[in-house]
């Protein structure tokens, strides 16, 4: 049975009374996804789109005449991947041993390598606006390689900045390398 005009009017008024403004939710489409890992007991992050795999380290094959942060080679699926200790890269004189059994295999441009980690803590989804630039009092040895810091203190590293660093790779032109010709015996 069709409604009368007065009934329709009542319904319309009721609908207007119940209506609320549409809540605009922020799109998460451009949010940043970061894998958080532990290094020296502190949380660090790497963008997920740079991450290829996380593996437990098997054997490490040291390569002589390389800087201390290049720990050696690990094998995965028949390929050799260079294992990098960021602890030694940030502090060339770092001493001591830490249980760092995870390797995060990452890519930056044409380079592929693995970062040693003590633990892997999960993936964070971050609003890009919530990621802040590194503070002025950040450790200067790390600052050039930090793309941002979260409110919780996760230091997000830039793989491209690491690869571009003068002394990251072994023996490139103009970069420091151990000279075998004058190497003193240990």
């Amino acid at each position: 049975m069709a409604m009368t005009p007065s009934e329709q009017t009542v319904l319309d008024r009721r609908a207007q009374g119940l209506a609320r403004p549409r809540r605009r939710t922020k799109s998460r489409h451009n949010w940043r996804r970061v894998l958080v890992f532990t290094l020296l007991g502190k949380p660090y992050g790497v963008d997920l789109d740079r991450l290829e795999a996380i593996i437990r380290i098997g054997d490490i094959y040291p390569v002589p005449m390389t800087p201390p942060h290049l720990q050696g080679i690990i094998r995965r699926q028949g390929q050799s991947i260079t294992l990098v200790s960021l602890r030694h890269f940030f502090d060339r004189g770092a001493e001591g041993v830490y249980d760092a059994d995870y390797a995060l295999i990452v890519g930056a441009g044409s380079k592929r390598f693995a970062i040693q980690a003590e633990d892997v803590d999960g993936v964070l989804r971050l609003d890009p606006e919530a990621v802040r630039p590194p503070p002025d009092n950040m450790d200067p040895s790390q600052r050039p390689y930090v793309s941002g810091v979260t409110a919780d203190g996760v230091v997000i590293l830039s793989m491209e900045s690491l690869v571009a660093a003068d002394h990251f790779a072994a023996g490139q032109p103009g970069r420091q390398r151990a000279d075998p010709r004058t190497q003193e015996r240990p």
Binding site: P64, T66, I73, S80, T82, F113, A169, G171
Partner: peptide, 18 residues
């Protein structure tokens, strides 16, 4: 096989073999 990225120029070492 090549040593791996970041190890392209290691003095006296030209590669690795299994």
């Amino acid at each position: 096989k090549p040593l791996g990225d970041l190890l392209e120029r290691v003095p006296a070492v030209s590669g690795i073999a299994l």
